[in-house]
Each structure stands twice: as C-alpha cells, then as structure tokens.
Design a protein around this nucleic acid. Sequence first.
DNA 1: TACGAGTTGCGTCGATTCATGCGTCGAATT
DNA 2: AATTCGACGCATGAATCGACGCAACTCGTA
Lengths: 314, 314
Amino acid sequence: MADEALSAGAVARRLGVAVTTLRTWHQRYGLGPSEHVPGHHRRYTPADLARLETMRRLTANGVAPAEAARWAVQAPDTGPPGAGVGAGKRSARDGGGATIPVGRSGPAARGLARSAMRLDSNAINEVIDRAIRTDGVVTTWDTLLRPVLAGIGERHVATAALIEVEHLVSRCVSEAFAAVVRAHAPDGPPRLLLSCADEEQHSLPLEALGAALAEAGIAHRLLGARVPVRALLEAVNRTGPAAVVLWSQTRSTADPAQLTALLTGPQRPLLVFAAGPGWRAGSLPAGVVRPVDLAEALSLAAAVRDSLDQSAAG
Amino acid sequence: MADEALSAGAVARRLGVAVTTLRTWHQRYGLGPSEHVPGHHRRYTPADLARLETMRRLTANGVAPAEAARWAVQAPDTGPPGAGVGAGKRSARDGGGATIPVGRSGPAARGLARSAMRLDSNAINEVIDRAIRTDGVVTTWDTLLRPVLAGIGERHVATAALIEVEHLVSRCVSEAFAAVVRAHAPDGPPRLLLSCADEEQHSLPLEALGAALAEAGIAHRLLGARVPVRALLEAVNRTGPAAVVLWSQTRSTADPAQLTALLTGPQRPLLVFAAGPGWRAGSLPAGVVRPVDLAEALSLAAAVRDSLDQSAAG
DNA sequence: TACGAGTTGCGTCGATTCATGCGTCGAATT
DNA sequence: AATTCGACGCATGAATCGACGCAACTCGTA
C-alpha cells in the first residue's frame, strides 16, 4: 500500500466539495480519516478516500447524505462507479442446439433435465432443493437452473414443443426460491424493490436474485412479472425503497423511459439497478447501475444491507 | 445521541402506510411519539416503533384499527387471541379508506387486504399460512383468498390500478400453496393431472386444488397456465393419468374441443373434469364431469383415488 | 335491497421546522 | 507563510406539520 496521506484540501479538491464540508462530514457522520487526533491535521488514507468516493457517488445519485454516509462508512466499495461496466464481457452464450439441451453443465443438470422430461415434479424439487442446500442459490442458478431452462427454452422456440415441461420446471424453480425466501426470516424492513420491466414476463431471474438476497439475510420486496410503469411508480411511492432493481430479459421490454421515470418520480431519488440482458449499456440514463450477472447484483445489493433507514441526525 | 430517532417518513415507509396516516393515527388514537411538542417534527423512539408494529400486526390480522390502536397503546407487545378465519367479535365498526372491498368475509380477509395494500409480503404470508394451518386449504381459499383476490380484481378492472398489489398477493398465495404441497409428502405415483385450458392464464384456482389434494394426501401433477392442447395431450400421453382436471376461468378459454381431444386421445384418461366458471354446462361433451366448486372437485378427486385403490387391491 | 351513519386511509395546502453545504473567524499546526 | 482546525452562523431546499376534505368501505336499519 502506498502510504500517501492526502491532506484535507487535496481531498476536497479531488471530490469537488469544500474543505469545510469534509470537516462537517467528519463531525456529523463520522466520515473522516480513520486515525485523527483532535486539533491535528486530517490525513486521509486511500481507504478513507474510497469511503469518501462512495459518499460522493451516492449523494450524486440523490441518496440522502445521512443515509449515504451510513452506507459509505460500513461498505467502502459498493461496486463500479459506472465507467467499468461497459467493459462487460459477453458471458457464456451457450450456442449450439445439441440433442441434450443442457450441454456440459454437470450431471445434476442432466438429471434435472431428465426429471423434467418425465414431468416428475417431486424429483425436480428434490434435485433443486439439494443443489440449493449444497451450493447456495447463486451457484445453483448459474450452473444448474439457468442452463436447463435455457436448454428447454431453445428447444421450445425451435420445436414449439416442451411447453408443458417449461411450465413445470419454471413452477418448481419458483417454488424452490420461494421456499428459500420463506426459510430465512427477514431481519428488517425491506428497502429493496425487485420488479420486472413493463411487459416483461420472465420473473424467474428476479426470483433467483430474491432468493439469493434472502439467503444473505437481506430483506426485499418482489413485485413479479409484467409490472406497468404506473404500477411500479405507485409501489415505489408507497414503499419508498432505497434501491430498485428492474429486470428486462429481452430488448423489446428494455425501455429506458422506465428508468428515467424511476429517477424523476415524485418520491425521493434512489438507486436504480438495470438488470438483465435486455438493457443496452449506451442508452441507460445517468445514475443507473447495471450489474452484469447475479453475483454482481447480489454484492451491489449487499451494500444496502444494514442501512436502517433513519434520516434523523443528532 | 439517540441513534434511533426515526422520522415520520422513515416510519411510514417501514410500515407501508402514508405519512398522513401516521399523523392521523396520532391524533385519532393517540398512537404517536411519546414525546412530541406540537408544531415540531415527530421523532419515533424504538418503543414508539414497537407500538406501531403492534398496530400493524393487529390490523394485519383483521382487528379494527380503533381497537388495535387501543391495544397497542397500553400493551405494546401483546395481542388478542389470534383466531381463525371466521372468528373475531364485531365490536367496532370497520371503515374503508384505501383498501380492498371484501364485504362480510371476516376479519382475516380485511387484515389480508390491509397487508396487501401495504405491500407487506411478510404479513401476507403470515396471515395466509396461519389460515391454512387453522382452517385448511379449502376453507381458506373459499372464505379468505378468493374474496380478497376477487376484490382486488374488481377494483383492478375498474380503476386499472392495484396491479402491483394483485401480483404480490398472487405470488404469496401461490407460494403458500406450494409450501403446502411440499409439506405433505406424496404417498404414491400421481394419477391426477391438473392443467389450465389453452390460453388460460389464471392458475391460482388450480393451485388451490393442488394444495387441497396434497393436504388430503392425494398426489397430483400440476402443469400450470397457458397449456396448449398439443402440450396437454403430450403430457397425458406421457404420464397416463387416471383423471385430468382442466381449468377455465373465462368463457373465452373454455373451448370444448379441448375436452373432446382429451376423450378421444390415444391414452384416454378415465375421467375428465371441466372445472372453472368458464365452462358452459350445455356445451360439454358427454363423459365430462363438471365440479361446481373446490370442495366438490376435491371430493370427486378423492373418489377417483379410492376407486383406484380398490381396483389395485382387487 | 337500498340508504344513511360511522370509520378509515390518504391527498392537498400554506406555514414551519430541519438537514445540509459552505462562508467566516481566531487559534493552532505544518 | 500557507493551511487547517474547531466553532459558529447563514441561506436554501426538502421534509414535515396541522387542518381540512374526499372517497370508499362496512354495518345497521327501513
């Protein structure tokens, strides 16, 4: 670690705020140099600077300063500031429709596919539950459920068959996620709102995120599929979440106007996540964070975890 | 400083009610911050919040707000004996406001409606689970869930609002039924196939039937919504069920040809049920049984099971 | 079965309170 | 000499307050 210790003025200039504000943030929110003896000059380490960067970015997104400071204090790095997202690698696009739709996704996937073809919901449930219990929600989703569902989906659009299989598996997956959410008691008021974009009917990925959040002890609200913009704004207005995750599976449902409506809504500004492969990186309004996969969405949401809402300060 | 001095907005968001409602509760029932000078902002201490939590819990169970407030003021963490669906004395009148019309469906229905308006999925789950545990699936469906869902639906078609509420409640109901199915281990191979009619997207009644069947120890398969005729025949052909229940919610999805196709298929099931209000009694092909409600469908299915057992034993 | 009375949640409006960023000042630090 | 420190104060926009009213629902009654 470079032991560079930035002075208050340097930090203030870098952040674009006044020196006095730094002092104010320190004494009001405790957001200052980690080691500081009263009366002496403040020396900001890179870690302190990172905290202040988080504070600046959150406040720039409209988060109330008191709340933003709380997040910044306990979660130094809440993800990329928006620049690094564009370099998102196109993740595995499992091309090639082979005879076995799951490809090389492991034996569990093959077993699941077989149970699905047999319409054996008990076996499906058993496989999914065990995978979740063993590997957790994220891994199960990425390495088991998504491949199988993608395989069924490809086959379905190609052959116009397997519709009943797709429905059954979707139901089982949904139920498994719901069971995870039910098993983990929520530890506080839900400050996270998950919703599908307008006309978007694929809610399973969002349910996966919800289950992963529950697994991590993070409370949330999940609205479901096909949420019109008006209904979404209504829900935001009513519950006032700290962050909203809007899922879009396909390009046709990824209308950036929905994000803009969220950011300019009557309710207080908030963090907005644009999740799902539908969104185009270039056309997103400013202030929208775009996680590339489930794991990143989870870690981003974790930054909001322990923030008990209280806008009062003493 | 008291690190827990919640502002009015924060509390309102946490409870899922409007800020105005909080003020109303204060001046109508005296349910407010313990220390509050008129004109100043309200600061809710944890004790005050606990009181409001009690208020929320009681109203979620259908207690009239005035009475719930009386309880919450004097006993922050106690409640009246939580009773089942039909219980509860009607001591106080129950008003309206921004809620869902449930008519005379009992206090639990009103509590569920209030929780739904608050988008409080935890409270919704709690109410539903307890009702199912106390009164069983059939009674819960007929006297609690269906009235509330019908109320939401009516208001939804009239006002084009409450879509998010409808989705949330539907999800919770679906999850509750799924939990019932999971909790009761199936005792044999499923000889019963439940499926929605083609284009039919309301699968909740079928899920209710599925949960009731599971509760009675009858194994079944549930395909889900929007099952094309070809997919249904495919599933019947593959699994060879003894009976098939085909659900149709509205007249537009009740094509009798689907029933005829079932009866003339190669793997002809022993019995075909045409369930749901969509079917017209006159236009059903011969050999199709039409249960009028959930209870009748359940008893018919039980009869099928028993006859199968007898034939297997003999 | 229709209607009035009682209840309840919440929107609106003008006034007030509060949180926040920053300027200023005398003393201390580098 | 150049900053920075701690303390205080100020301007401003957001949040809230109190009051009022409205629409909707339930229930008792005719």
